[in-house]
């Protein structure tokens, strides 16, 4: 019958076991963390507290993090920067962007002309994989993926963002720090 062979302990190992050196080492480790948590709140040298007080304190996301999309506006005129060129929709690998343009009558140099402007912009965040290819394709720096990460909604329909949501951003509850 095969037996599990346990290697015989050397004398040093026996002494170590008898005086419970490993136990004391473990106690040392936990004490180090306890003292570290009380003295050092900034998680320096791996002994402080790592917990983030999330809704109260906004966590820092990575600088290259891609989150909620946004349609930027001209800061002076507050008109959209989008020229309805449809390049973002073409660049999107997931096909989650719909740009709906419309024609408006404008007078250019005394002559009536038709101009293509943005009517509606549909962005399906449930299909988006946040690759930011649309952001790179945009010639006017209008479409941008921000660092906002709170995208959860109560229904599937809530994932589909229209132009108003993209321009204003979603309403989130802000907590006091």
């Amino acid at each position: 019958m095969p037996l599990v062979s346990v290697p015989k302990l050397t004398f040093a190992q026996k002494l170590k076991r008898f005086f419970m050196i490993d136990l004391l080492k473990g106690l040392g480790v936990t004490l180090k963390f306890n003292v570290g948590a009380l003295t050092d709140k900034d998680a320096v040298a791996g002994k402080g507290i790592y917990t983030e007080q999330y809704p109260k304190v906004r966590p820092d996301v990575a600088p290259r993090f891609h989150g909620a999309p946004r349609l930027n506006m001209d800061p002076e005129t507050h008109e959209t920067l989008c020229i309805a060129c449809n390049l973002c929709a073409l660049a999107c690998p997931e096909d989650c962007i719909d740009v709906i343009p419309m024609d408006v009558e404008v007078v250019v140099a005394g002559k009536p002309r038709r101009k293509k402007v943005l009517d509606e912009f549909i962005f399906d965040t449930s299909r988006c994989m946040f690759c930011a290819l649309c952001q790179e394709a945009c010639p006017t720096y209008c479409l941008e993926l921000t660092q906002d990460f709170e995208l959860a909604t109560y229904s599937r329909a809530g994932f589909v963002w229209n132009r108003e949501m993209l321009e204003q951003g979603r309403e989130t509850v802000k907590y006091e720090a």
Partner: peptide, 13 residues
């Protein structure tokens, strides 16, 4: 609290 500190957490806050 102590268990939290030992595990680098904050505990009840």
């Amino acid at each position: 609290k102590i268990s939290a500190f030992i595990q680098a957490r904050l505990g009840p806050m």
